[in-house]
Simulated scan of single mutants.
Amino acid sequence: MAQRVMAAERLLDLVIALSHTPRWMTKRQIRERVNGYADAAGDDAFERMFERDKDLLREMGVPLLVEHDPAHEDDVGYRIDPEHYALPPVSFTAEEVGVLSLAAELWQDASLRSFAQRGITKLRAVGPSPEPGAHAGLALRVRGPEPAFAPLLEAIDARRAVVFTYRAASTGEVTRRTVQPWRILSRDRGWYLVGLDVDRHAPRAFRLSRISGKVRATGPAGAFTVPADVDVDELLVRARPASGAARLAVLPDRAAALRARATRATAADGDGQGPLTDRDVITVDYPDLELLSEEIATYADAVLVLDPPELREAVLRRLRAVAALDGEVAAHA
């Protein structure tokens, strides 16, 4: 038995057929050639179906034209006027192309970045080149989903439990967690998993940036039911990251992104925190200690953390991990 064609698919096929017909199409031709109209049980059913589709296309602004054969006035046909249906050409100035190019640099996530770059490549192929140096010194970044996002989403869809290693926000303790994943939310510029902590027998929220290593699904599919009465806001309050203000010692002309967010900048005061000669001391407010530590670690020795101690330790933890990885690579070279 043939599968019934959905109304949306039938409408799309009708638009394509009427847009590309060399002359026009009669009702009989439409019924025979356009996918979906063969589902009509009879002539009356086809008439009702086609009339509904015509009305819907016109409501959507599609310029559907009715044509008559001058020799046979009873011979009626339909077509879509391509001149009135086609979109006008799109053009951009060099300044606009430059802004769009800058916007395409936002995404750090590999898949999203590739889509943006392909779009910019096509735009530059048919438009003017951006003004060189118009946005010199500007670099925009938006974090994409964490690596744990995709496997957690698959587990939520399959209703399967997951196992992962998690670093607690309050203590920094790293433990193995088994969770029944319920949903993923975006709050406070971060991604959170809400689910049942199996070992603690209680609902919990987990920030995805604190999940280390791979997320592994375990157990059968359809193993649990997501409750409808979960107080998500209360769970997120417990999982929200530590925030505060950081004092940083920065080398001249380095860490422009941190300097731009600084609420205060002073000369180095040599307060026993190490060699601060020729460094500027800036204060930067942060909503998430872990995200800031990740950013600071990319500057290596160009940025030293003076306060708070937990931020300094988080940066050192990342730098030690990189050093250990570099040592392993060198050993196997």
Rank of each mutant, 00 (worst) to 15 (best):
M1D: 11
M6F: 09
R10W: 13
D13K: 03
L14T: 14
R23A: 12
M25F: 07
R28A: 12
R28M: 04
V34Q: 06
D39Q: 09
A40T: 07
R48F: 11
F50S: 03
R52G: 07
K54I: 12
L57W: 11
M60C: 13
V62A: 00
P63D: 05
L65I: 02
D69K: 00
V76D: 07
D81T: 04
A86P: 00
S91P: 01
A94G: 00
E95C: 00
L102G: 12
A104C: 02
E105C: 10
E105T: 14
W107S: 06
Q117W: 09
Q117E: 15
I120R: 01
G127C: 10
P132M: 03
G133V: 15
V142Y: 05
P147A: 13
P151A: 14
L152Y: 09
L153M: 14
D157Q: 10
A158H: 06
V163S: 05
F164S: 04
T165R: 12
R176T: 15
R177C: 08
T178I: 05
I184L: 15
D188W: 05
R189N: 07
G190Y: 03
W191L: 10
D197Q: 11
H201N: 12
A202M: 09
A205I: 06
A223M: 09
F224W: 04
F224D: 00
T225Y: 00
P227G: 08
D233W: 07
L235P: 04
L236E: 05
A239K: 05
A239P: 07
R240H: 14
R247G: 06
L248W: 13
A249G: 12
R254P: 04
R254E: 15
R254D: 11
A256T: 14
A257M: 03
T266K: 07
D271K: 01
T277H: 05
D278F: 07
D288I: 10
A300W: 07
V303C: 02
P308K: 03
A321I: 02
V329M: 01
V329L: 06
A331S: 11
